[in-house]
Simulated assay, not measured.
Amino acid sequence: MQYLEFKISCLEEYREILISELAEVGFDSFLETDEGIDAYIAEDLFDREAYQAVIDQYVEAASILVKEGMMAKVNWNEEWEKHYDPISIGDEVYVRASFHAPKIGVKHEIVINPKMSFGTGHHATTYLMLSHQLNVDHQGKRVIDIGSGTGILAIMAFKLGAEQIEAFDIDDWCVDNGNENFELNDMHSVKMGLGTIREVNPQGQFDIVLANINKNVLLDEMEVYGTLVKSKGKLLLSGFYEHDIVDIENAAAKYGLDLQAKKTKDTWASLIFEKR
């Protein structure tokens, strides 16, 4: 799968609102730059009309200039070695690349080497999901990671004692990368699948369902999540902004999912639901 790249020059005060608006129309990754933002979307998910409506709305007020291109499939291991620093969640979790030294005294160490995958722990949504996982009992549980990316949430579930883990993504690069990361973390019995949740069609129910995607996909798939979560099971969601919490909560409630906890970071949000 190819990613489209949009280098958007804009006034500083419009960066956050543009990120929010573009996330609503399917963009899933952003990088703030000195000039504005770089925005990325999978080529097959790009809706030119919806994108242009966002740009047209702010083009004059935000002094927007856009340069479009295709994101090359680069060697992300090399790029990370140039720019990536390990991250910590207190003394609980330490996420590092294989070229970094281990950290003494940390409870859970996760080794992630990305290719064309997203979900490194640096983005607020991944950080929030990992933080939520630390507060959910995974011991002996059946867990599914939807839109797994690098596989980092599935790896966290493994570290926390999950007995059975399933993971999948729509991007073949993510699948290859996720499987490599599983091996790096001694998850030899877990293999990432390819496809959407409806294509993969996971069987049975799960104690814990993880989905860090984007608001539109979460809303579209919420009914499926409701069928996958066991009674008293947990659904952990992220990939949306604080102002989207009400929409996500209302959609989840229709399928017997009650909000139990929420966390926010840098205007992003992550929620835990429990199945009635």
Rank of each mutant, 00 (worst) to 15 (best):
L130K: 05
F182Y: 14
K115P: 07
S29D: 14
E199H: 10
E16T: 15
E35K: 09
L184F: 13
F27H: 11
D169P: 05
I19F: 08
G233S: 07
G121Y: 06
P114V: 09
A167W: 08
Y40Q: 10
K7H: 13
H188T: 13
Q139T: 13
D244H: 06
L130F: 08
L237W: 04
N216M: 11
K232P: 00
Q52K: 08
A61M: 11
G36T: 07
H243V: 11
A251D: 05
D56W: 00
G69W: 02
D137H: 10
G69E: 13
V136T: 11
T126A: 10
E92S: 14
M192I: 14
D34F: 08
H132E: 09
H100Y: 07
S29N: 15
V106G: 02
L218K: 00
G204W: 04
I110R: 05
I104H: 05
A61I: 12
M71P: 00
D44Q: 10
Q260A: 14
D258S: 15
I37T: 06
D56K: 07
Q52P: 03
Q205C: 07
G178W: 03
D244F: 06
E68W: 03
N201F: 09
E249H: 02
M222F: 06
G161Y: 04
I208M: 05
E274A: 12
I64L: 03
D176M: 13
K265I: 11
L219T: 06
Q205M: 10
A72P: 03
L45A: 11
V209Q: 03
S231E: 13
S238D: 01
D137Y: 04
I55F: 07
G147V: 12
I208G: 02
I170A: 06
D169Y: 09
I213G: 02
H83P: 00
K73R: 03
D207R: 04
W80T: 04
I89M: 01
I213D: 03
E274I: 14
S98R: 06
Y127A: 09
L236E: 01
D34P: 10
K73Q: 13
Y3Q: 11
M129T: 15
D244N: 13
L235I: 07
G140Y: 00
H243E: 11
A42W: 08
D137E: 13
L257Y: 07
A53K: 13
G204V: 07
G121F: 11
N250M: 02
A62K: 00
D56Y: 00
Y3N: 14
G233Q: 11
G204H: 03
K230P: 10
C10I: 14
S238T: 03
E92Y: 12
G147N: 01
K141H: 06
T120E: 11
S189C: 12
K263G: 15
I272T: 09
E43R: 09
L236K: 02
A124D: 08
T125M: 06
T125R: 00
D244V: 05
K191L: 15
E43C: 14
P102K: 02
M222E: 01
E274V: 15
K82R: 08
S117Q: 03
S231D: 12
D220T: 01
M129G: 01
K159R: 15
S98P: 02
I17A: 12
D186P: 01
Q139E: 07
Q203D: 14
V200I: 15
M192N: 12
V246S: 09
N181V: 12
D47F: 14
W76F: 05
F6Q: 08
E92N: 08
